[in-house]
Amino acid sequence: MRPIANTRDVTGVPTGRLAIWWVIGSEIVIFGGLLASYLMYRLANPGWAGHAAHTNVVAGGFNTFVLLTSSLFAVLAHQAAEAGNGKKAAKLLIATTVGGLIFLTVKGFEWTHEIQLGYTITANTFWSFYYTAAGLHACHVIAGMIVMLIVAAKARRGVDLHHVELIGIYWHFVDVVWIFLFPLLYIAK
């Protein structure tokens, strides 16, 4: 039961796309606030470089690669949906989700290792930021995966194909957040 309001597009931008951009706009300021706080602390505490040295750049780099690849699948899924091929789009979306799963698995191993070494969320404010920022990002990855599976299930039946594009836009955003987190948390030493 879609209201008539939902079918109008006065701005020329489809309503769904408009909405997802506003969601992303408000998400940007959430991550923006967190990262700005981190940067202020980081500049005031040069000693944090020593803590950052204990992060696993290889795992982080691999995860960056995984997320970028999964974004590529999201783009391909969008193309397939545009062509009206719901089945293909669904498969590609599942491939994207698998990317997210690999990302989370690697993250899980990383965190387990770090916690075993004693670098817990309370070890130091650097590690507090590390777990908070990456954790908030991981929550977005999980949420994105769940929605993506729902969209994929519908796309397989050829329903709501335009949702494929929307979840794709969201996934790219999650990806971009990671592109900011990775150098800030892992590389800057």
């Binding site: 706009g25 606030g33 706080s37 507090s128 908070t132």
Partner: peptide, 17 residues
């Protein structure tokens, strides 16, 4: 509201932690 509340959400998460 949507463009200003983000930093406070981040701050609230930090405060809860």
């Amino acid at each position: 509201f949507m463009l200003s509340v983000g930093p406070l959400i981040a701050a609230a998460i930090m405060l809860l932690f």
